[in-house]
Design a protein around this nucleic acid. Structure first.
Lengths: 210, 210
DNA sequence: GTCTATAAGCAGATAGAC
DNA sequence: GTCTATCTGCTTATAGAC
């Protein structure tokens, strides 16, 4: 076979690649992160990348596939969970907060998070895949590995705290949240995460220390 | 007088009204709440209401105006704030949680909340008006009337807790959150709101009791 | 790889008959 | 008030030249 157009899984740019594909990916992340799926047009992505709209679909096949390809988590999720679990349990809330806030500081990771949240708010399928990512790869495994009581419930409450931060800081952009110092953000988010991971839970579970 | 087509501000249906207008409004709330602004078509609203698409725009002028008219808070916001402020301060977190959860139990109010959140996630203008509603009418006035320290920051943190609940329970629909009993929901959300309204704040503010 | 040109579909909105 | 018919614009996607 005369070398079909099979893409190398890793190993950097092959001879013949021009970097256009990655320029399109970067532009797509920017637009999806800022405007969501519906609010982003292939034309706008192409314009930002400085290429022709047809080229976007030449590389990625469809807008949907482009979204899937480009909205993968840009870090090793399992490894991040490992590192959090390995650390001091007494500071898990703060360390989880630090990790998430660090990720949100990186424009690429932030745009991935935001793009998926915005898409989830507009589309049930996108909501389902985000739900799967959270419960199956991110927060779910973390709470299970931590060995806390009622792990699913705590994972849900931890997720709520993270969604709350993302929504107020990056989507609705409430002034007081946008204006918080890095320390304040870390402290307040860490406190909530600590509460949800280690605090008492209403209802049935046995509260630690009456 | 030849009664021009001026709409009575209150007092119920005038002779000649058929109820179609309200049927369209109900259908619109349903669709906007479930699918957001972009995901909702005038045609779909008309189909649900059982009328012709042209009739929707005959009554409301444009899709945008329909959204504005129909997404007003279906309860007296100022009065709700008054009632919360008047109650026992020691239970403010729980009472606020109860109020919000009660509103989310009502399909009409829930669809208004959800429609605005989904629209905010896709559109910067919608995000700005939601931000104004939260800081100017809902949470902002509440924390100010409560006389807490650093009211803007606490309002932001309270808003985050509420967004977190709405996102995990109604948008992303994380199983463990959807499956919580009413008591568990009230208890856990109340606890977070209590923390954000009365707990210590990282950084500069003086912590109560070292 | 990159472009031009265009097809095909669906949206919001309008004109006008009844 | 309610409907039919249609206009206009924008979208994703494709065919094919270079």
């Amino acid at each position: 076979m005369s070398t079909p157009p099979r893409r190398a899984a890793r190993g950097g740019r092959r001879p013949g690649d021009s970097g256009t594909r990655e320029a399109i990916a970067a532009a797509a992340r920017e637009h999806f992160g800022q405007s969501g799926y519906d609010g982003t047009t292939v034309r706008a992505i192409a314009a930002t990348a400085g290429v022709n709209p047809a080229l976007v679909l030449y590389f990625y096949g469809s807008k949907q596939q482009l979204f899937v390809d480009v909205m993968r988590m840009p870090f090793d999720v399992a490894e991040a969970v490992e590192r959090l679990v390995a650390g001091d349990r007494a500071t898990i809330g703060r360390r989880l907060a630090a990790f998430v806030l660090g990720a949100l500081d990186d424009p690429q990771a932030r745009n991935v998070f935001l793009g998926r949240v915005r898409a989830a708010a507009a589309d049930r399928d996108a909501a389902a895949t985000l739900r799967g990512l959270i419960t199956g790869e991110l927060v779910g495994p973390l709470v299970h590995r931590l060995g806390v009581d009622r792990p699913e419930l705590r994972a849900g409450l931890v997720s709520a705290a993270l969604f709350g931060h993302v929504m107020t800081r990056w989507v609705v952009e409430i002034d007081a949240v946008v204006g918080m110092t890095a320390d304040e953000t870390l402290e307040t988010l860490g406190a909530v995460l600590h509460l949800q991971l280690t605090g008492p839970l209403g209802g049935s579970a046995d509260p630690p220390d009456g």
